[in-house]
Computed example of a mutant assay.
Amino acid sequence: MKPKVVITHWVHPEIITNLSQYCSVVANPTRETLPREEILKLAQDAEALMVFMPDRIDDAFLKACPKLKIIAGALKGYDNFDVDACTRQGVWFTIVPSLLAVPTAELTIGLIIGLARQMLPGDRLIRQGTFAGWQPHLYGMGLANRTLGIVGMGSLGQALAQRLSSFEIDILQK
Rank of each mutant, 00 (worst) to 15 (best):
L120P: 04
L75E: 10
A144Q: 15
V151W: 02
D58P: 07
Q135F: 00
F131Y: 08
L164F: 05
S98M: 14
T147C: 03
M50Q: 15
I113K: 08
L156A: 01
L148V: 11
F52M: 00
G142V: 14
T94Q: 05
P97A: 11
R127A: 13
A64V: 12
A60Y: 11
I112F: 02
A159V: 07
L138I: 03
L156Q: 09
G73R: 03
A161N: 09
Y139K: 15
P97M: 01
K63C: 11
D59S: 08
D58K: 09
R163Q: 13
Q128N: 07
R146N: 03
M53P: 15
V51F: 08
V91R: 05
G152D: 06
L164M: 11
G110E: 03
V51M: 12
R56Y: 13
T94A: 06
A105W: 09
A101W: 02
I169M: 06
G149N: 11
W92Y: 15
D59G: 14
L99K: 10
D84G: 10
M53F: 13
L164I: 04
L107K: 07
L49Y: 06
C65H: 02
R146S: 04
M153V: 12
D79N: 14
M153I: 15
F61W: 02
L138E: 10
D170C: 03
T147R: 08
G110N: 08
S166K: 14
S165I: 04
G73H: 11
F52Q: 03
F52N: 09
T87Y: 15
R88M: 02
E106N: 05
I95E: 09
V91E: 09
L107E: 01
E106C: 01
D55M: 05
K67M: 12
S155Q: 14
A64K: 12
P97I: 05
L164Y: 03
L49N: 00
L99W: 13
P66D: 13
Q162T: 04
A48C: 07
A74Y: 13
G133S: 00
P121S: 04
R117K: 10
A144R: 11
A105R: 07
D82W: 03
A159C: 09
T104G: 09
V83C: 09
G149K: 05
K63W: 04
K63Y: 11
N145F: 11
S166Q: 15
N145V: 01
L100V: 09
L143S: 06
P103E: 07
I95S: 07
P121C: 02
D82E: 11
D84M: 05
T87I: 07
E106L: 05
S155T: 04
L68Q: 08
G129P: 02
G149W: 10
L156P: 00
I113S: 05
I169D: 14
R117F: 13
T104D: 08
S98L: 12
A74L: 04
L120Y: 11
I109L: 01
